[in-house]
């Protein structure tokens, strides 16, 4: 069964960037898909199209039966409750406790504004604590989020996404700002949880090895175009490298190091 469907989706940014160029794909429920591509190839754009942060210039994006691009605000909220998202820079509220950060993930299913941990229902706080325990940070529940290490912060962000009990988990370069050790920890956490909760995962990465290790399916992007779409088992390192364009054989440096 297909959880996410894109039909001829194009996204243009003024004046002349085409960040997604006529992309069609269908992602089955319960699979782990990796988006692979250079910086600027359109990975984030694609993920943001899926949860309606961007609306497509043309084409349609359907997630769990709802067309996201044209949905009304209330419909969009409804479908977003089923889509969790994790970002490269974690995006936690630094001055809030870890637990309260996780609780904010449940806002979509609550009515009315909340401010402060005590304003969330007990059931939500318990659920948040369980997710926090799942990512191994129950002991840090009252610690300020900005006092945690990068890897820990990303695990909190994962817990925040899980608290909304999503069916789809989008992850935009979740490990790009982490060291290899934490990267492995976070990736395996996501993979494990995805399996336990039968989540549909779409995760963008820029390291070929990680993509081949964790993905069921690899989608390659270059300048907004889909240039590869294969089950991971069929993909060789050389194939994966070819996504990076003309420097097919050379190992592309990750963008961060290239910029230094």
């Amino acid at each position: 069964m297909s959880a996410i469907t894109l039909q001829n989706v194009t996204k243009k940014f003024p004046p002349s960037t085409v960040a997604a160029d006529d992309i069609s794909l269908s992602i089955d429920a319960g699979t782990f898909t990796v988006l692979l591509g250079l910086s600027g190839s359109g990975k984030s754009t694609l993920l943001r199209l899926i949860n309606g942060l961007h609306t497509p210039t043309s084409g349609s994006v359907t997630v769990l039966g709802t067309e996201v691009g044209t949905a009304r605000r209330s419909q969009l909220r409804q479908v977003r409750r089923d889509i969790g998202m994790v970002f490269q820079q974690f995006h936690l509220v630094g001055s809030m406790s870890t637990l309260e950060n996780v609780c904010t993930g449940a806002l979509g299913s609550l009515r009315g504004p909340r401010i402060g941990l005590f304003s969330y229902p007990k059931a939500v706080r318990q659920r948040a604590l369980e997710q926090l325990d799942r990512v191994g940070l129950a002991d840090q529940r009252f610690q300020r989020a900005d006092t945690l290490s990068g890897g820990q912060q990303q695990r909190v962000a994962v817990a925040r996404a899980l608290v909304q009990q999503p069916k789809v988990l989008l992850a935009d370069e979740p490990v790009a700002s982490l060291d290899p050790e934490s990267s492995h920890q976070v990736m395996s956490l996501i993979a494990q949880i995805a399996r336990e909760d039968q989540l549909t995962v779409v995760c963008s990465l820029h390291q070929v090895e990680l993509a081949m290790h964790w993905g069921d399916r690899i989608i390659g992007l270059r300048q907004g175009k889909k240039v590869m779409d294969e089950p991971a088992a069929n993909v060789t390192s050389e194939d994966a490298m070819s996504i990076y364009g003309s420097m097919a054989s050379a190992r592309p440096a990750p963008p961060e190091t290239a910029a230094v």
Binding site: R80, M85, H91, G105
Partner: peptide
């Protein structure tokens, strides 16, 4: 950060206060 919370389906006022 606000967008990240909005992606979970939080309404504008909720994002504002939280």
């Amino acid at each position: 950060v606000q967008q990240a919370i909005a992606t979970g389906g939080a309404a504008r006022t909720q994002v504002f206060f939280a």
